[in-house]
């Protein structure tokens, strides 16, 4: 009972923070959209034909790109979560919460739920703009559900990791640094380019890092391209990262705060 009430209170606090930090919230929402437009209109002309040729001429670049941008938006959202957790921990108000008779996990629950909602808004924005500039997914209702489910899993995984980063590093700069991989690893994945079109070492890395099977699965669900065993890998990575992030965040939060 009180756990739900306290988490709701913390979520409301988190939401007010997003409104007060309007600049950061907005840039978090707009960054993925701008990335997408940049790739479509600046690099798309050069990369698009190669992608199209690699997939047997069936896939336009905006179709190829959108799943990657969606995953990138989740990464960008988690970066802002890490920063907001780190700032919060520095505030000293967390120490106050810890000495109050409230549900222990409510602070973190508020952060996780708030972050998830922000990221979902960002994803909706990306899909909306993508449709405007020519994204034509071939997915039926079941595939859409699958795509949304996978994105939800990914949000869960990244948010818990981000919360753990925020708890451990304790400064906004550190949190931003720690979440860099989640923001920039997609650049070296199949998000913008097929790995077999990259130079060999980088291509090998891109093919085996976690973002690639996640993006490939998402692409498969939305465009009907073959998924292969990427699906299992994607779900496995998400569940593994969620568990890691959750356990790490929990132990960091339960540790006595440093002086």
């Amino acid at each position: 009972m009180s756990a739900i009430a306290d988490s709701t209170t913390m979520l409301r606090r988190n939401f007010t923070h997003s409104v007060r930090y309007a600049a950061m919230t907005l840039s978090g929402l707009l960054l993925p959209v701008l990335m997408m437009l940049m790739f479509v209109y600046i690099f798309g002309g050069a990369i698009g034909p190669a992608i199209s040729a690699g997939t047997g001429g069936g896939v336009s670049y905006i179709d190829y790109l959108t799943p990657g941008i969606l995953v990138m938006a989740v990464g960008a959202g988690s970066a802002s979560t890490a920063v907001s957790v780190a700032v919060d921990m520095k505030e000293g108000i967390i120490a106050r919460f810890r000495t109050m008779a409230i549900s222990r996990g409510s602070v973190i629950t508020g952060q996780v739920v708030g972050s998830t909602i922000r990221t979902l808004v960002s994803l909706a924005l990306v899909i909306g703009v993508a449709l405007l500039v020519g994204f034509r997914p071939a997915a039926g209702p079941v595939a859409w559900l699958g795509a949304i489910g996978l994105l939800a899993l990914l949000i869960l995984a990244f948010t818990w990791l981000a919360v753990a980063f925020g708890l451990v590093v304790r400064s906004a700069e550190g949190a931003n640094m720690a979440s860099m991989p989640m923001q920039f690893l997609p650049l070296v994945s199949s998000a913008f380019m097929a790995p077999d079109l990259m130079s060999s070492g980088i291509g090998w890395f891109a093919a085996y890092q976690p973002f690639t099977p996640i993006i490939d699965t998402l692409r498969g669900l939305l465009l009907g391209t073959p998924i292969g065993n990427s699906g299992y890998l994607a779900v496995g990575w998400c569940l593994g990262l969620t568990l890691l992030g959750f356990l790490w965040a929990r132990s960091a939060f339960n540790r006595d705060p440093r002086r």
């Binding site: 606090r13 007010t16 923070h17 007060r20 930090y21 505030e91 000293g92 108000i93 120490a95 106050r96 000495t99 109050m100 008779a101």
Partner: peptide
Amino acid sequence: AVRRAIGVTGQFSAVDSLL
């Protein structure tokens, strides 16, 4: 139970500066 009975005002003001 202890937390229900106490209040703490710390050395560094524990207020939320975004609220």
